[in-house]
Amino acid sequence: MSQTADLVVQDLHVAVEGKQILKGLSLEVRKGEVHALMGPNGSGKSTLANTLMGHPRYEVTGGDILFKGESILGLESDARSRAGLFLAFQYPVAIPGVTVSNFLRTALNARLAPRVATTDGSMPARRGIAPKEFRALLREHMALLKMDESFALRYLNDGFSGGEKKRTEILQMAMLKPEIAIMDETDSGLDIDALRIVSEGVNALSGPDLGVLVITHYQRILDYIKPHFVHVMLDGRITLSGGPELALELESRGYDFVREGKESAR
């Protein structure tokens, strides 16, 4: 069974600065599926997201992460990305001086097949996607997310509003075409309009070629992005899994009912 899922998390244990955060988390996500991972603050949701992406601060102390059948624990973040994983950040990082356009072109080019350094060790200046083709692609995807064209020349996430940052995350996701995308609290800090635009973006990208793991504290985003599966996370583990109805139940009853029924649910 686990061989067929694209992303398989097996009994994952993760520590941050010596403190155990994930305590045996298992999860499978296939392309074409939308999973929601819900949990209260401190349950380890963002730890899972960043561990999947290979953040150096998170130490895997047990278990495994398989992507397309192979362990990715030995891969750095960039290799995981190129393999087809994507993380939409809860708090996207500003890169002053680097335009959205320049960044995206560099990121797309990094995905193109092997690059050969010149004899002096530097990479050839012009490589990969043709500028004209790139601009067309960028314009097309920005239109989808209702982003103004001038956006391309702004410095990445530098002085962006919360909504602009999240939209830029989805723009990156659209351009990089991952197979499995993890959305870490994408709904946080968004007003209803921004939430709708971001969700519509995700929905437009969803389909048989993309698996999505939506990590969220609130049910709100699930009004827009409809999950096939809902998982509840408490204290470093998934304690309850079910269909979309589970999200609604959480909304009305809070996380306490999961806490109370934790033993029986497992």
């Binding site: 750095e76 996207p92 960044f103 990094a110 990479m123």
Partner: peptide
């Protein structure tokens, strides 16, 4: 910043 860029597929050097 390095982590963020690397999660977009940029090798450390890039």
């Amino acid at each position: 910043q390095m982590y963020y860029l690397m999660t977009r597929g940029l090798p450390r050097g890039d």
